[in-house]
């Protein structure tokens, strides 16, 4: 019986402004089990960050709104939870880290203070004790505890991100949301930070939702992957299987557009066209204007999720409505 921590069902999130209604997330469902690492992959604008922000109800007010759907966490629907209840969860049971470490830390407080704050917020220990634990967390992320009294500007980008991770894990959360945590870092530092995230989450048995546009980064840390496009999850499954034999045309396109060092390829095969404007989505299957296998029904019929064992895909080809031209019949 898998121990499911987070269960999202048919989530729809809109950004409502005077001029338009931006449909950022259009009905996604996913589960995260205890100890699992789910990679959420997609281009910019696919709705990945919005999904993560919705889980913690950190959407910008008043424009960001959860239009419908449920986010079940430990028996509670977060979509309906009050601000008071969410505050108890943030930083405590669910933590989030963001993309740019350079600006994620408050410049006028010491790093020790900033880690201790999250501890003090969610426990009843003394300030002294909280600071001590903050020092412990620093050691855990590979920073000498003596640097507890230093200010963020005295650390490099990679170390700042480690401090951010320390803050996120200080209260031993069940779920960590990581939004492009290494995108702003050098490649070498990137590897270090990813390794550290992987190591810590294994030790502390934290579930992970890692958002990235970089398939390589996801491969390093995650065991499951979900591909997002225009607010929908178009493919979902164990990482190894999806990477080896993608089912959805979009996933296939993503892999086709990566330059590979050891293969001699004449040209990269990028996906034609651009991601649609979320305020003005195409009818039928959202991907059909760019899909190399698109046929008649694709512009009018909205695909439903097809499950094949531990894999899911959102494409009319697998529903038998159109001809399967991709050549991947069964897994």
């Amino acid at each position: 019986m898998p121990d499911i921590q987070l269960s999202i069902r048919d989530l729809r999130v809109h950004y409502v402004t005077e001029e338009e209604d931006v449909k950022a997330v259009n009905g996604i469902s996913l589960d995260i089990e205890r100890g699992q690492s789910l990679g959420l992959v997609g281009e910019t604008g696919a709705g990945k960050t919005t999904t993560a922000l919705s889980i913690l109800k950190l959407l910008p007010k008043p424009t960001g709104q959860i239009a419908s759907g449920s986010i079940m966490f430990k028996g509670k629907d977060l979509a309906l939870a009050s601000e008071e209840e969410m505050r108890k969860i943030r930083g405590n049971e669910i933590s989030m880290i963001f993309q740019d470490p350079m600006t994620s830390l408050n410049p006028i407080f010491t790093v020790g203070d900033q880690i201790a704050e999250v501890i003090a917020l969610h426990t009843t220990i003394s300030a002294q004790e909280a600071l001590k634990r903050a020092g412990d967390m620093l050691e855990l992320v590979g920073i000498p505890r003596g640097r507890s009294n230093e200010f963020p500007h005295q650390f490099s980008g990679g170390m700042k991100q480690r401090v951010v991770i320390a803050i996120a894990l200080a209260c031993n959360p069940s779920l960590l949301l990581a939004d492009e945590p290494t995108t702003a870092l050098d490649v070498t530092i990137q590897a270090q930070v990813l390794a550290m995230i992987h190591d810590l989450k294994t030790r502390m048995k934290t579930s992970l939702l890692l958002i990235s546009h970089d398939l390589g980064v996801v491969a390093q840390v995650c065991d499951t992957v979900a591909i997002m496009y225009a607010g929908k999850i178009v493919e979902h499954g164990p990482l190894a299987k999806v990477y080896e034999k993608p089912l959805h045309p979009y996933t296939e396109g993503l892999f086709g557009s990566i330059p590979v060092l050891h293969e001699k390829k004449k040209r990269l095969k990028p996906i034609q066209g651009l991601m649609p404007n979320p305020a003005d989505l195409p009818g039928g299957c959202v991907f059909h204007p760019r899909c190399p296998y698109a046929q008649g029904p694709c512009s009018t019929t909205v695909p439903r999720v097809t499950e094949k064992g531990d894999r899911k895909v959102l494409c009319l080809m697998y529903e038998g409505i159109i001809e399967n031209r991709m050549g991947v019949a069964d897994v």
Binding site: L58, R87, K88, F98, T103, L105, N106, I108, L121, I167
Partner: peptide, 29 residues
């Protein structure tokens, strides 16, 4: 609008403290 304010909210700090403890001291400089 700064990122560190977003971090503070993600830590579970209540809005009042976000404004007066985290934001204000930076804004006052």
């Amino acid at each position: 609008r700064q990122d560190y304010i977003r971090t503070a909210r993600a830590k579970g700090v209540d809005e009042r403290n976000v404004i007066y403890r985290h934001a204000l001291r930076n804004a006052l400089i």
